[in-house]
């Protein structure tokens, strides 16, 4: 793990390590005692990176990043939220178990430093099954699922690309202040708002205490975006189709990046 400092000449390293028997993120400086660094547990580093970057000043940081972290970081830099020149990625390849858990279609980071790439999972069975349902059956399925939501906002807080300054879902117009579940609109607004950014990391589904199959929902929405606009989130270049005109030019007045 010292590659971060020697090879990449970074000033800081963001990684996960064992802390009091749990796995927690740490930000290490050159010369710190690394402790027991962990790469075997999926940890959404992109999210944490975005939160520590404002405190780093001119320091360059190396971060342990899986493919989905890498994509989330690309989405952030594209929107000017962080400077890609100050971030070096230590590519972590997910193992077969993790890939199958996420039904991940794109598990291999562009440069692998740790682990070995495994094959992408075949088509997501859960998504296929849901899309094979008729429209009324889908509604039945999703209302039953959304009813379980306890409005903990875990899905939002853990999402690496949920980075607007003012959250729509925190407005009482869209989410009732009192009472759970928050209703159908909560989940749909979240789906649409992240439609051009979601990198399918599965963090929302892992965070959800109610076991709502959020990753399946995200994958279906991403598929819709792909069908409509041919756009897939996660590369640093292509501007989101929702931020361009019909001719693909960037909108002149675009101040809301999210």
């Amino acid at each position: 793990m010292r590659i971060a400092f020697e090879e990449m000449k970074a000033d800081r390293l963001l990684a996960a390590r064992t802390e009091h028997g749990n796995v927690a993120p740490v930000l290490l400086a050159r010369g710190d005692v690394p402790g027991e660094l962990r790469t075997d547990v999926p940890y959404q580093m992109a999210n944490i990176l975005l939160r520590v970057v404002p405190y780093l000043g001119s320091d360059r940081v190396a971060v342990v990043a899986r493919k989905c972290d890498e994509k989330a970081i690309a989405e952030m830099s594209k929107r000017g939220l962080l400077d890609p020149g100050k971030v070096s990625l230590i590519g972590l390849a997910c193992d077969a178990r993790q890939v199958s858990e996420c039904r991940c279609s794109d598990p291999c980071p562009s440069k692998v430093h740790i682990g070995e790439c495994v094959k992408a999972a075949p088509a997501d069975k859960e998504v296929e099954d849901l899309l094979a349902k008729t429209v009324p059956e889908r509604l039945e399925f999703w209302t039953a699922q959304f009813r379980k939501c306890n409005k903990c906002f875990g899905c939002t807080s853990n999402c690496p690309v949920c980075f607007c300054d003012e959250c729509l879902l925190e407005e009482k117009t869209f989410t009732p202040e009192k009472g759970i579940p928050p209703g159908f609109a909560f989940h749909l607004i979240r789906s649409i708002h992240l439609a051009d950014k979601c990198v399918e990391c599965g963090e929302c589904e892992r965070a959800c205490p109610a076991d709502i199959p959020l990753l399946a929902l995200r994958k279906m929405v991403n598929r819709d975006v792909k069908e409509l606009f041919g756009f897939v989130a996660g590369d640093g270049e292509t501007t989101s189709p929702l931020l361009t005109t019909l001719d693909g030019e960037p909108m002149e007045d675009d101040h809301d990046v999210c």
């Binding site: 899309l131 429209v135 009324p136 059956e137 889908r138 509604l139 039945e140 399925f141 999703w142 209302t143 989940h187 749909l188 789906s191 649409i192 439609a195 929902l217 279906m220 929405v221 819709d224 975006v225 069908e227 409509l228 606009f229 189709p241 929702l242 019909l246």
Partner: peptide, 14 residues
């Protein structure tokens, strides 16, 4: 762009 996407996502969830 937004409205057709909204319609499509709505259909996806029923």
């Amino acid at each position: 762009k937004r409205i057709p996407l909204t319609a499509k996502v709505l259909e996806t969830v029923g």
